[in-house]
Design a protein around this nucleic acid. Structure first.
Lengths: 125, 125
DNA sequence: TATTGTGTATTATGGATATAATACACGTGA
DNA sequence: TCACGTGTATTATATCCATAATACACAATA
């Protein structure tokens, strides 16, 4: 299930990117499956209290990335096959970890120190 | 020592932020210490092949964050005291780890899985 | 049939970022 | 002295992001 009320927007990344990422997370968590019918652009905009044009931009990138299909004015449908799922998984887990490792090494954190820090902060919030 | 040639700019974050972050990393690594004289705005701009105005913007935030002091046209000096060092350390390590944990939890990664992934990718590059 | 909601498109405005081209006052050094 | 590099400031342009206000064709539905 998608519930855009639970999506807390940050002021760092473009909003349309955050929307696409949210849907990807839900796909990875299998809370959204193949054939899922997405709310309309205007509905999502109302829930997030943003402009419909921004939502439309999110749909544009999701269509370009292949996991959302739209035809006519019949709304948009989530499409997932094995390749797309793996690509999303790659982006949301392996890529995330790799970028973190890169940043950690930038400030000379050792593997040991990193695991210590993660252990220390994992439970808080 | 600062060597802006080694700073590879990404196209995600604002350039002036990346410059300030680079100097902070060098401070944290103790490669730059209190009293270090920074290259001129124009010199850094030439090395990074960017506009001097962008470098000036980086100096503005570094001065506002308190670890760079400038007087007249005598160039800029790095200033570090205990508080500033701790603030930089907080930002570049703890904050980094906390944000990573937040993202990992967003996609339901367990502590165990995270440590596994980091172990798997730590050595590569 | 007529209204409503849909996806889509266009135009305009504003802020943030980055570049470009200057300009000016000030110290230093040849 | 005087040219040079310095920090600083200003104006203009361009792109990206987000908003605002419309407009239009189409499908479903009351």
């Amino acid at each position: 299930m998608l519930n855009f009320f639970e999506l807390k927007l940050n002021n760092k990344d473009p909003v349309y990117i955050q929307i696409a990422s949210y849907v990807k997370r839900k796909i990875l968590l299998k809370e959204v499956e193949n054939g899922y019918k997405l709310p309309s652009r205007r509905e999502i905009a109302a829930q997030l209290q943003i402009n419909p044009n921004t939502v439309q931009k999110a749909f544009k990138v999701m269509e370009e990335e292949g996991f959302v299909h739209t035809s006519g004015n019949q709304g948009s449908i989530v499409y997932i096959d094995e390749n797309i799922f793996k690509r999303i998984e790659e982006e949301l887990t392996r890529e995330l970890v790799r970028e973190f490792i890169h940043s950690a090494k930038d400030v000379n954190l050792s593997f040991k120190k990193v695991v210590e820090l993660i252990s220390e902060y994992w439970e808080e919030n």
